[in-house]
Design a protein around this nucleic acid. Structure first.
Length: 764
RNA sequence: GGUCAUAUAGCUCAGCGGUAGAGCACUACGUUGACAUCGUAGGGGUCACAGGUUCGAUCCCUGUUGUGACCACCA
């Protein structure tokens, strides 16, 4: 490419961004030679194969790419593990919708047919995601990309499950779980959003057994009353003292339940008497356990309708909503409903399905998280694993110290199928392969054809939790483990970080990562969360198309203030584009000056005061970035780039070069500019690599080492004074006018400064 | 109800125990070697409020209020 190319053109990222990326691809691969003491590795949080990337992805990948490029350019053995997550429920939902558009009903497809369709979807989604990551400039070694359901990973997931089962940390149990009535699967309590709604509190009279008295129960869920096992009151509640120990009769049945005392009963809430329905309420489940009351589920296995012989006939087989209505009508007619109070209360909704979550007794697989949590807490407490910003460790501790057994089974189709088989008599065989399971069955005198495979799949986060060591378990990758830094959002501290820590510590006895940098959430310019339903989503591809990937990256970097969410508007990107244009134009100017960009540093005469000054600023810039990287202050880096390039290099040094017009000083300008490009490369890789190539055909991004350079501080101070003087004189010119006496006097006043610009240069 | 943040210029945000900062927006001027996707200069702030510590507080402490997030409750 001819040198003159840059001079005549304006900054246009579209003309080179893709090209620069493709030409750098090889340099992204980790170096073959090992240097175990000096490596840097990051696990890219694998995006879901559900669709396109949003600005949050752009943020997290930009920050990771900065870290990766920074270390790589300094010769550190660097690895960034790319990959994709199969995202069980989310992907299944997306694929079902996608099929629906094609006129296919997912439920009409066999298991194998459906799974084949999901793989089809995955292939196209993966291509689209990686294309977007590349457009953003992600410098990941794509040939090492992994997928949470690729062959090797699937095998590891099964192995991990079997080992945990054999170690007694995974078990199957009948428990009350959060049941999504639409998806018909258990889901995690982390996937539930409580929504405040207007509801009613119904006061219902239960007759006291062998008496004409009644006791009033307040409930928001009358339809579950047939699953009641007790009524509870507070032991200090005078109103009910005489009833304690007696029995109440559930309306429309002849079932008698005891009236007990329990701390759960709050004298100030409702009627003071609460029904205990362990099979349909988490609190009641605990109360039931305390008093050994057992549990009675009155719902069908889908959680849709009342279906139990304990339910009076007029409600049996009736869908929940309707059942409530019918029951209330009956209660009203029979004068058992004595009061209806309008209240506001929180109702649990499934995040993914958007339907009401029903606590339901089901048999599920659980991982003994409380046992695994201890070590994970320990490594954070001891500082082996550090959170940035530090405050997030509190969030982590809060959750970890109250962790519940983790329900890892899901009743969906897409995911890792649990490697368990059932014999006709109900025994469970857990083995890595079907062959082994059959062997085991034979020993139990069970014919292979009688074995039934578990259809449940594992929670997506179970496999994600294995990500650190499964991706890093080859001979080649081992040198990058434990990884250096994890960059991610706070929203998956529980989902992902905690699980990775527990599982990695268990299987490898090692930490998965040393630093955890928690970045902000990207919101819109009004501080609202971006969501499709609000229509305030900004597509990163569109921004990159208009302003360039560098501008987007620079914007996200600039806005990455720790502990504060990002309010993101398009204007920010425009401003960034303008700054990058400034960098471009500075290069254009230098090029017109016939500057040699490749004079080795030791052949430049740096004795001049102005040279000493700009070099001191360059060193300050470089050291500043090194410090910022250590502290994950990405915002500072972006800020420094502006201060150095605009305020110091362009506004003063280039202006000085214009006056001085000395070949050596010009070449210093070329050198300093090139160093700026290298130091800024991690943030804005496209434009810097393109300019370096245009100006000097230089591909070496390693910044110059200034550790042996001695700066004359007196010279620097002299120039600082000069800068201040220039500003002062300019101010007078504006205030008083160019012909004013004061201005002329100030301009010619060298007594204060005692050094003219010319003098400074003449010392060169 | 609990926890953690947060409050600085019109807006978005840095910052610091000692004269208050940037970008955008605004105003004026400017196309005299790159840059109007720009330059130069300027206006604009009781640093939420009230106490306390201190020679000195925007900064540290306590409380109040506002805002946000998370967790819990959810009869």
């Amino acid at each position: 490419m001819e040198i003159s190319d840059i001079i005549s053109t304006r900054y246009d990222p579209k003309s080179f961004e893709k090209e620069v990326y493709e030409s750098s691809l090889d340099s992204f691969l980790p170096k073959p030679e090992k240097n175990l003491d000096n490596y840097f590795s990051i696990l890219m949080p694998p995006p879901n194969v559900t669709g396109n990337l949003h600005l949050g992805h752009a943020l997290t990948y930009t920050l990771q790419d900065i870290l990766v490029r920074y270390h790589r350019q300094r010769g550190v053995d660097t690895f960034w593990q790319p990959g994709l997550d199969h995202a069980g429920i989310s992907t299944q939902l997306v694929v079902e919708k996608w099929l629906e558009k094609q006129g296919i009903k997912a439920s009409d497809l066999s298991y194998d047919e459906f799974i084949a369709k999901v793989w089809e979807w995955k292939a196209s989604s993966a291509t689209s995601i990686i294309t977007q990551q590349k457009a953003l400039g992600c410098s990941a070694p794509w040939k090492y990309s992994r997928f949470t359901m690729d062959e090797g990973f699937s095998k590891s997931v099964i192995d991990a499950f079997v080992q945990l089962y054999k170690d007694g940390l995974i078990y199957k149990a009948e428990r009350l779980v959060n049941w999504d009535t639409k998806l018909e699967t258990a889901i995690s309590d982390l996937e539930i959003k409580n929504v405040e709604e207007a509801g009613s509190l119904w006061y219902i009279n239960y007759k006291i057994s062998d008496s004409d008295e009644f006791i009033t129960v307040a409930t928001t869920r009358p339809e579950t009353m047939f699953g009641d096992v007790a009524l509870a009151v507070n032991k200090n509640d005078e109103r009910f003292k005489k009833l304690i120990g007696k029995y109440a009769v559930i309306p429309y049945t002849d079932r008698k339940i005891p009236i007990i005392t329990d701390e759960h009963a709050d004298m100030d809430k409702g009627s003071g008497c609460v029904k205990i329905t362990p099979a349909h309420d988490f609190n009641d489940f605990e109360v039931g356990k305390r008093h050994n009351l057992g549990f009675i589920s009155v719902l069908d296995k889908h959680g849709h309708m009342l279906n139990d012989e304990l339910v009076p006939e007029f409600l049996r087989g009736v869908y929940l909503k309707k059942a409530r209505k019918i029951l209330l009508e009956h209660l009203t007619n029979d004068k058992l409903l004595i009061k209806t109070e309008n209240i506001k209360h929180f109702v649990p909704y499934g995040e993914k399905s958007g339907t009401v979550i029903e606590p339901l007794i089901t048999k599920q697989w659980f991982l003994d998280a409380p046992t695994l949590a201890g070590k994970a807490i320990e490594v954070v407490e001891s500082g082996k694993v550090k959170f940035y910003p530090d405050k997030w460790k509190n969030t982590f501790f809060d959750w970890m110290k109250n962790i519940q057994p983790w329900c890892i089974s899901r009743q969906i189709r897409w995911g890792h199928r649990i490697p368990a088989w059932y014999t006709p008599s109900g025994e469970i065989i857990v083995e890595k392969t079907e062959e082994e399971a059959i062997q085991k069955a034979k020993m139990l005198n069970v014919a292979p054809k009688d074995l039934r495979r578990e259809t449940d799949v594992l929670d997506t986060w179970f496999s994600s939790g294995l990500w650190p060591f499964e991706t890093m378990n080859s001979e080649f990758m081992k040198r990058f483990f434990p990884t250096t830094t994890l960059v991610t959002g706070f929203d998956i501290i529980f989902f992902w970080i905690a699980r990775m820590m527990m599982l990695t510590l268990y299987f490898t006895k090692n930490i998965p990562f040393k630093d955890i940098y928690i970045h902000a959430l990207v919101r819109d310019d009004k501080g609202q969360k971006m969501s499709k339903s609000k229509g305030n989503v900004i597509d990163p591809l569109e921004l990159m198309n208009e302003f360039g990937a560098d501008a987007l990256r620079y914007t996200l970097t600039f806005l990455s203030v720790p502990g504060r969410d990002i309010k993101f508007g398009r204007d920010n990107v425009k401003i960034s584009r303008n700054f990058i244009t400034k960098i471009w134009n500075a290069g254009r100017f230098l090029q017109t000056q016939g500057i040699k960009f490749d004079v080795p540093f030791n052949q430049l005469n740096t004795d001049g005061k102005i040279s000493q000054w700009i070099l001191s600023k360059l060193i300050e810039f470089k050291n500043g970035i090194e410090n910022d990287i250590k502290e994950y202050r990405f915002d500072y880096i972006a800020h420094r780039m502006q201060v150095f390039l605009r305020d110091q290099f362009c506004d003063f040094f280039i202006e000085a070069v214009k006056i001085q017009n000395d070949e050596n000083t010009k070449n210093i300008a070329g050198f300093v500019y090139k160093e700026f490009l290298k130091l800024s490369n991690p943030v804005i890789p496209f434009v810097t690599e393109h300019l370096l190539d245009l100006l000097s055909h230089n591909t070496d991004l390693r910044p110059t080492d200034f550790s042996t350079l001695k700066i004359n501080e007196t010279d620097v101070k002299d120039v600082e004074d000069l800068v201040a003087w220039v500003h002062e004189v300019r101010g007078i010119k504006h205030a008083e006018g160019a012909n004013s006496e004061k201005y002329v006097k100030s301009k010619n006043d060298t007594s204060k400064l005692n050094k003219s610009l010319k003098e400074l240069f003449s010392l060169a």
